[in-house]
């Protein structure tokens, strides 16, 4: 069980050249992720979802200040433990395709990732991970600039899964993909969860998160407002407890496409 308990985060930013001020970015973030679960975190861009992912894996920039606690199987997950687990038990699928080394063929990068994770036969593990995401033969041997956005995403996915990590954090893994590729990536995440891994899917896309997720946490302005089973998102959202989650559901173009009034959703003010 991976637990985030009342996580808050400030950034020290320069105001002008010299003076620094603490800018709060996360206020109150709490959620749990179980093995075998695909848990989606849904919210607006800029709400701090990626920061939560970076905090989980211990890769925050140096000017971040963290409060609250992270626990893995009941034990405190601090910086040392994060460094020890990162890439092995705890893997991040980053949002930016810039995470790929532009000078290295993709199957080598996956092999490296497997080796970093301490796998016995890294080359075979890489091969398997690449096959799992549907990259075989020539397409697995290309340089990053020869890959389409969808293929590059799948290479990142293979890098995270080659090491048999138990916990996967996927940060907007389907951004920029067309519907066919997006479905492929999401299904792959679902399969990983079904194989017993804990998968945290961070996305702004509620519609497609719902198609694979077990539970959904609605994130707004640095706060987790509500965690609900994916099945609660139906009808007019009566089963949802927060106004914001309901508004988010109803704003989908295939629901009401509704622009909520501020008095209906106090969080929007």
């Amino acid at each position: 069980m991976l637990e985030i308990d009342r996580l808050a985060l400030d950034f020290l930013r320069y105001r002008g050249l010299w003076r620094r001020a603490a800018i709060p970015c996360l206020h109150d973030v709490s959620l749990t992720l179980a093995r075998g679960e695909l848990h989606a975190v849904v919210g607006a861009s800029g709400a701090g979802k990626s920061l939560m992912a970076q905090a989980l894996i211990g890769l925050l920039p140096g000017n971040a200040r963290l409060r609250g606690s992270l626990r893995l199987d009941g034990e405190l997950l601090d910086a040392t433990r994060q460094a020890a687990l990162r890439g092995k038990h705890l893997a991040l699928i980053p949002q930016s395709l810039a995470a790929l080394d532009p000078l290295v063929r993709s199957h080598h990068q996956v092999t490296w990732a497997a080796r970093r994770a301490g796998v016995n036969a890294p080359r075979a593990a890489a091969e398997r991970a690449l096959t799992d995401v549907g990259l075989v033969g020539d397409s697995a041997r290309r340089y990053p600039h020869q890959l389409s956005g969808g293929m590059a995403r799948r290479v990142l996915l293979a890098m995270a899964t080659a090491g048999e990590a138990e916990w996967l954090i996927a940060d907007e893994p389907s951004v920029g993909l067309d519907p066919a590729h997006r479905a492929g990536v999401l299904e792959q995440l679902r399969r990983l969860a079904d194989a017993g891994k804990g998968v945290l899917l961070i996305t702004h896309d509620l519609r497609h998160a719902l198609s694979v997720a077990d539970r959904v946490t609605v994130f707004h302005a640095g706060t987790t407002l509500e965690t609900a089973p994916a099945t609660a998102f139906q009808g007019r959202g009566e089963a949802l407890s927060s106004d914001y989650a309901r508004a988010l559901w109803r704003a989908l173009p295939d629901n009401d496409f509704a622009r909520p009034a501020v008095h209906e959703v106090p969080q929007l003010a």
């Binding site: 607006a44 509620l206 704003a251 173009p253």
Partner: peptide
């Protein structure tokens, strides 16, 4: 790249 609420607001 926008969430559903922001998307609905922008288009309306």
């Amino acid at each position: 790249m926008l969430d559903a609420i922001t998307q609905a607001e922008l288009w309306q």
